[in-house]
Design a protein around this nucleic acid. Structure first.
Lengths: 219, 219
DNA sequence: TGCAAGGTTCCTGTATACAGAACGCAGCAT
DNA sequence: ATGCTGCGTTCTGTATACAGGAACCTTGCA
């Protein structure tokens, strides 16, 4: 090992864990948009006191998953159609930047790794394993963001993608939508392997435009 | 008033105020990067108990201004040169997107407003009022982000710009740097007034590239 | 004199306590 | 029937209390 990159012993503070737990509850839909968050109740359900719970809520509020209304606590944020559209526009810009950088700087091994993710995803598509397919789909987008070599870009991308997770998951519900999206992913991986910046940005843009069309009706 | 846009009576919760206060302390440099944040001490200095203070720290941690080390509390995040470079790359992508959207959708009044900001900034440049000049400079970049009509884009842009505030302020220290940046701003406002997307994205990109050169030596 | 072990002090992380505001309901007036 | 008002309950916002761990200093030993 040329550098000391060992992860320190995993220290879990309660509020850190809670951020993950609550984020999942929101993404999975157990805490539906608009739901008012009852600190005492949720705290009891999770087996923690209000203090670390409130700290977690502040964190999630900064991420944009929760609105904090003074005197009334937290509410799971409801994304309007316009919000989603806005976020997708930003996501396009970030993914295109990431894609361009990836074409220039990614190693062949890194690209092969994305290809392997892609191939696994295609098998899941063939076997109609929707949940796992979806997870790999997101993983591929994240992987491209990571391939940019720009950590900040990757984490910004991840934050936005995470907020859109639930909506995009529902958007893959329709069978024909699913097939369409798969076709776009094939173009994507091929453009990346050719390191064809123009083609990659074009398909990424188109893919997210199509995502919008797929998602639009369900908002 | 054609719409009910009156702000509700300003409700200030302590932790909300603290987020602003502490953010300013960091940006202004009173809490230097690397500084470990002493909850008891800072709380006493600000006249609040640890509870709302800790909540504010969680919020700022999510924004990226603070690192939270389990068992050791908060540390003001130190940006490496690479971090700044990465953030600027993302900022370019966002500003270019904003600029393009602004050229298409902004009203003439909105553009005139940016022009007035610009003219005021030029006067401050002439009178060498560096602090006020700098504030207007940032305001112009924010205004362009807002002109995009994409709220999410504007707030994302604002968050990143805020994290870079301190560094960019120092970067304007050199007199010749200052003049250069002013020239770029003239090109910027003119491109916006012509609604010339290509010219605007070009100058925005160049401006932030130059910002990098101005800032690079001081990191 | 350098180093290590132990203890002490301080600090963080979490729980609990308390005050004030918000919500809901019942009763009254219109 | 509808709207207002007053009260009680419940919840949030903040402060305080307490436990476990980290940092630091001291002291003993090599």
């Amino acid at each position: 090992m040329d550098q000391l990159t060992v992860a320190p012993v995993a220290r879990h503070t309660l509020h850190e864990d809670l951020v993950g737990r609550i984020r999942d509850l929101i993404i999975e839909g157990q805490l539906a948009p608009g739901t008012r968050i009852h600190e005492g109740q949720l705290g009891e359900a999770l087996g923690v006191s209000r203090t670390p719970l409130r700290e977690a809520l502040k964190f999630l509020a900064s991420e944009g998953l929760i609105d904090l209304v003074p005197g009334r606590g937290g509410v799971v944020r409801q994304l309007s159609a316009q919000d989603v559209r806005n976020m997708l526009d930003v996501l396009v810009a970030l993914e295109c930047l990431a894609g361009r950088l990836a074409c220039r700087t990614a190693t062949d091994e890194q690209i092969k790794h994305v290809r392997s993710l892609h191939d696994r995803m295609m098998k899941l598509y063939a076997s109609r394993n929707r949940l796992e397919y979806y997870k790999l789909n997101q993983a591929i987008h994240s992987a491209i963001a990571t391939l940019s070599g720009n950590d900040f870009l990757a984490s910004t991308h991840e934050a936005i993608q995470s907020r859109l997770k639930r909506i995009r998951f529902i958007g893959n519900d329709e069978p024909d939508n699913w097939g369409e999206a798969v076709g776009e992913h094939v173009e994507m991986i091929e453009a990346l392997e050719r390191r064809d910046e123009e083609a990659l940005t074009e398909i990424l843009t188109r893919h997210l435009q199509e995502t919008w069309k797929r998602v639009r009706p369900i908002i």
